[in-house]
Design a binder for these strands. Structure first.
Lengths: 213, 213
DNA sequence: CTCCTTAAATCTACGACGTAGGTAATCGAC
DNA sequence: GTCGATTACCTACGTCGTAGATTTAAGGAG
């Protein structure tokens, strides 16, 4: 193989992949996913739109990159703790990372990333499961069940409508009570609101009870 | 209030909301979500793009409508059967409806629909849960836990990459084994492939065991 | 019948988008 | 010096969603 030749990246270069991804995440946080465009991102960076293409492969690849940045924010669990604690800590870490950037979270939740970035948490869960004597196939199943629950929970939590505090809920409550469906009407107060935190703990508890009692 | 006057919709009209939604779903099925545009949809219907706006409120509302069409395809469970059977049937019905239109499924999974269409399945689950003595708050929690799992599972299953049969899996397997992470390497054969059917049953079983033993 | 109201379908046009293709400047390796 | 690689810029093309104005046709009211 030949050595790398030609002009290497310089410190003086205006752009870098990292700077682009960071600014893209900020843009998503401020204006939402739908508002992201290569041109607007370039404007924020003080740069020609086409310059971005020297560092990312296109808009889709850019968003993949942002998703990886988000994933990398999940803290590694402290080793040596018990199985249940490890899984719980990772689940909470994942959720916290997504809730830290609610408008960007769908990037992680809607793509399946082939990236290696995602493997560290997998290792952190799989290790204790295998050590506890789980056969690998069931360990993988359990891991994926928790992951599916995490993704589904965050999905409902995250691209939530603007929710004009209260007004939305009250209208919703009235709709539910007037639906003509008996059970829906009876449970309307609980259907109208959503304590995501409590529901996350409830579902996670069920899954962890089954997997790591 | 004055009675409705003027020209009502006619049978002879070229377009109707139903026809638009049906063709939109077909378009998504054939070309994927990213390929949907008002102009292309109008072309398929033999109509001017702007004519669509007489029947739908815009592109986003159009896609909401397609999502509702998909939701409406979930069969109602036969009443009178047990709690677990009801919940299981609904979960399988939901999954089957989404897998019947995999490229359109994200429309349902990524929006929270305020539509009443979604309430019928809720009633079907909530009724037996309340009848079984569940307090309404726990019934709602349980319902939502299963829904989150459903959404998460389908999310991973549905916008799956094209998957060039085998080649992708083999490359992925090699990547996993060479990752340097011991547990990942050990479970690589199970991480590389994904029997979605089996994993769905596994996770659903755990949740139903906890909710409707 | 003639008017009036209304909805359906069309036409034109605007600004924004992703990005292909080409050019000039700047560096390291030879 | 020359060469190749990399960055940043510029222009331009085709496509997009949809605002706005216009035309057409179908009732109901008189």
């Amino acid at each position: 193989m030949t050595a790398r030749r030609g002009r290497p990246p310089r410190d003086a270069d205006v752009l870098s992949r990292a700077r682009i991804l960071k600014e893209a995440l900020a843009l998503v946080d401020e204006e939402g996913l739908a508002a992201v465009s290569m041109r607007k991102l370039a404007r924020r960076l003080g740069v020609d739109p086409m310059s971005l293409y020297n560092h990312v492969d296109g808009k889709d690849a850019l968003l993949d990159g942002v998703a990886e940045v988000l994933l990398a924010a999940i803290p590694a669990p402290t080793p040596g703790t018990g199985l249940r604690e490890t899984m719980s800590a990772l689940a909470h870490g994942f959720r916290a990372a997504m809730l830290g950037h609610p408008r960007a979270a769908p990037l992680v939740l809607t793509r399946q990333l082939a990236s290696m970035t995602a493997l560290a948490p997998v290792e952190a869960v799989l290790g204790p499961l295998l050590a506890a004597g789980y056969p690998p196939d069931r360990a993988v199943h359990g891991l994926r069940a928790v992951l599916a629950f995490l993704i589904g929970t965050l999905m409902r939590e995250v691209d939530a409508a603007p929710t004009f505090s209260g007004a939305g809920d009250r209208g919703r409550l009235a709709d539910l009570e007037g639906s003509g469906l008996p059970a829906v009407s009876a449970a309307a107060p609980y259907l109208a609101v959503c304590d995501h935190e409590a529901e996350f703990e409830f579902g996670l508890g069920i899954l962890l009870d089954a997997l790591a009692p």
